[in-house]
Design a protein around this nucleic acid. Structure first.
Lengths: 336, 336
DNA sequence: GATTAATATGTTACCGATAACTCTAAAGTA
DNA sequence: TACTTTAGAGTTATCGGTAACATATTAATC
């Protein structure tokens, strides 16, 4: 590997002069600068970022840790985060946890070892608290995305899950449904709790009883973790006329299972959910959903993070952004 | 930040002893080891990866550079690559180029600056050649995914695009179609060329004339780059009875445009394409596709890369893996 | 022409780790 | 007992950069 010392020797100057040319600092005569640059080109010099970071105590590296890289909500979010990071000269490392606190722990470890300047994290769940404490202990700024962690007073960008759930239920009730089921993620995840609560509130508001049998708590994905849907369906008699799914992955799995039982949506049962399925859903817009501004989650979150990083002394308290939920009515609800 | 020197001082040993405890090298008495470990825990020590890499000349960091992070083909591929990398103790950095050679150049630059141990690259196109030469010049092992670059003798994992295109056309011809259009990615991309060629071969084999007007060359995505579909459709008289799309993004865009013109698939026109749309496509399997083993692209590619990295002296020539194309027949082709 | 100021460059120390070598004391050997 | 091993540590140099200070020119000022 070519180093500044190689350049320095060949150009007949000191290493410091080369460093100055690279960083455009200090004063350098045009002649020297030209000579150094020529030698750099000749030898194909590329600065060693590690050596730089070591002395500068700054890596310009950020981590984005998400729970499911195949979920379009998160990839869209990732794009938003990446755009914002690039714009301000930071590089972004992605991590994928599959909602597994173990894997998340591995990534937190990587963050610390790498001395990343900050972290954008969609936490696996409440069990992420020790990880956040770890980050705080090591003074690594972080912003949570999509989910809160009780006990961690952190910056966070959330969707309005409770209101979203209310709207979905309201939509169903408006279409005449009275037996409405909910398939949801784990209660260890704040957004799942909020969605359940919104669902219950909306039921109460419409004088519908809450029936535990109509609620399935499973996982937000990835799909291999989704179990028990079939048994749940078989256990409900009579079958609900409508379903609310806590996210896109659940909606898909539920729909697949319904189909395997010969049940069609919306002819036989109605279905609404959180999140768009994919950009491909636009091909044949079908599901009535609460659409979340995935890109904004990443973009705003990244901006908050960079603000924290670039003004570390700023005493400003915790920042909490709640993005509104938008109901998009399509064709998956049948009017009873 | 806590360093080995802090540990050393507090434990009353030298920094080297601490290093030995961390890496489990050399000889250390149980007593000393225990003492050092205790101090490490107390102070919450985390090794500085950069300092380590600097002296070891190895980062255990790999880059995966893909062209579209919102395309499920690539996210599935990414998962395959990540799994393989984790298993062997490497960390993975993702980059997203949007098929833009400029952005790709930025990432190649990042690879070099970071001194990553290797790169897995889905090249933006033939214009990526200088980037590959750059990597070679700096002795960074790399493996290409999904696309070849003429002039670069590199390891590569490909799909059998030509055969895939042949099968798609054959399927259409078998259903009675004789006026078959192709919407494809840029000819600067090897897989687009192969798909075009397979399309032409299959036409010839079935005594159908090749008509340039029936072929649109646009982009494999992201969607904002897709233009000219509507004008192309309007220019074809009569309209083809069937379409082949060069990938999933194109299929979606085409379908959306067709729908906006009041044309339904398959009632009015038939459509087949490369790649699954998303895992969500399984919800309501509809499109007849050539399904590629996206996970395997990433997994095998990563294994090849790690093999290269871990036996650098190995003189073995270029390795080229071609994964077979599998036709999955569903409901998007109408029998004429 | 001597002094001061500005410009251009060099020297040294350090960031946080590890390799290679050295040293010391206790154990083993003849 | 004298000599060799060996276990368990320490010292020093180095990886590739940059900050801070020092120095040598050249130009400006009186």
């Amino acid at each position: 590997m070519v180093t500044i010392y190689d350049i320095a020797e060949k150009a007949g100057v000191s290493a410091m002069t080369v460093s100055r040319v690279i960083n455009n600092t200090g004063r350098i005569s045009d002649k020297t600068r030209a000579k150094v640059k020529r030698v750099m080109d000749e030898l194909g010099y590329v600065p060693n970022q590690m050596a730089r970071s070591l002395v500068l105590q700054e890596t310009r590296l950020l981590f984005l840790i998400i729970t499911d890289i195949t979920n379009p909500f998160y990839t869209t979010l990732a794009r938003g985060a990446e755009d914002a990071a690039r714009k301000r000269g930071y590089r972004l490392l992605f991590g994928n946890t599959d909602e597994d606190p173990e894997k998340e722990n591995d990534y937190i470890d990587a963050v610390l070892k790498t001395r990343a300047d900050g972290v954008l994290l969609a936490p696996a769940g409440d069990a992420s608290l020790p990880h956040l404490e770890m980050l705080r202990r090591h003074n690594v700024p972080f912003v949570l995305l999509d989910r809160e962690v009780p006990g961690a007073e952190s910056d966070v960008v959330l969707g309005d899950s409770k209101e979203g759930a209310r709207q979905l239920v309201k939509q169903l009730v408006g279409a005449g449904h009275r037996r409405i089921a909910l398939i949801n993620g784990s209660r260890t995840i704040s957004s799942a709790r909020e969605r359940l609560e919104g669902y219950r509130e909306a039921l109460k508001l419409n004088d519908l009883a809450y029936d535990e049998a109509l609620v399935l708590e499973t996982s937000f994905g990835p799909r291999s973790d989704l179990t028990g849907i079939e048994a749940w369906l078989d256990g409900m008699r009579p079958l609900p006329t409508a379903f609310v799914a806590g996210n896109n992955v659940l909606a898909v799995e539920l729909m697949r299972t319904l189909r395997s039982k010969g049940l069609r949506v919306p002819e036989d049962v109605s279905l609404v959910c959180f999140d768009e399925l994919a950009s491909y859903a636009e091909m044949d817009p079908f599901l009535t959903v609460i659409s979340q501004q995935a890109y904004q989650f990443g973009h705003l979150g990244m901006q908050m993070l960079l603000d924290r990083i670039q003004s570390p002394g700023d005493p400003a308290g915790r920042r909490r952004i709640v993005l509104p939920a938008e109901l998009i009515v399509r064709r998956s609800v049948r009017q009873l």
